[in-house]
Amino acid sequence: MDARVAGCRVCPRLVEWREEVARVKRAAFAGWEYWGRPVPGFGAGDAPLVIVGLAPAAHGGNRTGRMFTGDRSGDVLYQALYDVGLASQAEAVSADDGLELYGVRITAPVHCAPPDNKPTPAERDACRHWLVEELTLLRPGLRAMVVLGAYGWQAVWPALAAAGWEIPRPRPAFGHGVRVELDGVQVFGCFHVSQRNTFTGKLTPEMLREVLETAARAAGLK
């Protein structure tokens, strides 16, 4: 599935943008050969805990080819995963840096870097089948999910429904620390690890670690 994700060219605007970014590059990464393709999920296919973000960053995952790697949001996320014992190291700089996740898979509802970090509803919907397939594959062992941000929260419920879960009506509202119990899976809301949230203190390292710790226990990893 990851190989098929990496070859997707369904959304013309996203294809054009991700490839243009990979050609032009940022000055700080002029020596890099950018990935410039859709970014698959990262982590084992039988992980009991999945983390769902928004989309790869133009000079982060779109450069490295690995979710949340090579940007400041990823710095915060991987440090927290390391702190709570879910990652082998605190830094994520490239796809071959030796980082391992313990019982965790990281994915997103949109696999291409979008302009201004804002995929359109049509692009989100076109990408949904990948998340549905991923959740279907994970389902036998999946016990917990952490959803980062309101965008991911809105996107994940239709995917969960399509993957066979019965979804509460009305759909649960997003909030940091919200916890929803589905059939065999507990879903946790968490503010996104964006620079806006972490720089302003809306999301602190302590808040992030608390959600990850609670989710890890729900997943049987603690």
Rank of each mutant, 00 (worst) to 15 (best):
M1Y: 11
V5E: 12
R13V: 08
L14I: 02
E16A: 13
E20H: 14
V21P: 10
R23S: 08
R26E: 00
R26P: 05
A27I: 05
A28R: 14
F29N: 11
E33N: 12
Y34G: 00
P38T: 07
V39M: 15
F42R: 08
G43H: 03
G45Y: 02
G45Q: 06
L49M: 04
L49N: 05
L49W: 05
V50M: 08
V52S: 04
A57C: 12
R63E: 00
R63T: 05
R66T: 00
R72T: 14
G74D: 12
D75W: 12
V76Q: 07
A80R: 01
A80L: 00
V84S: 15
A87I: 01
Q89H: 15
A90T: 08
A92V: 03
V93R: 11
A95Q: 12
D97L: 07
E100N: 05
E100T: 03
G103D: 02
G103P: 00
T107N: 00
P115F: 03
P115D: 01
P119Y: 01
E123A: 10
D125K: 13
A126Y: 08
H129R: 14
L131E: 02
L135V: 00
L138S: 09
L142K: 06
R143A: 02
R143V: 08
R143F: 02
M145I: 13
M145S: 01
V146G: 08
V147F: 03
L148M: 15
G152I: 03
Q154W: 07
Q154P: 06
P158I: 03
L160C: 05
L160M: 11
P168N: 15
P170W: 10
P170F: 10
H176Y: 09
E181M: 09
E181G: 04
L182V: 04
L182S: 04
V187E: 05
G189T: 04
C190V: 04
F191Q: 08
H192L: 09
V193K: 05
R196L: 15
R196Y: 12
N197G: 07
T200K: 10
K202Y: 14
K202M: 15
L203H: 08
L203A: 09
P205L: 01
E206P: 12
L208P: 08
E210F: 11
L212E: 01
A218Q: 06
A219F: 02
L221M: 11
L221A: 11
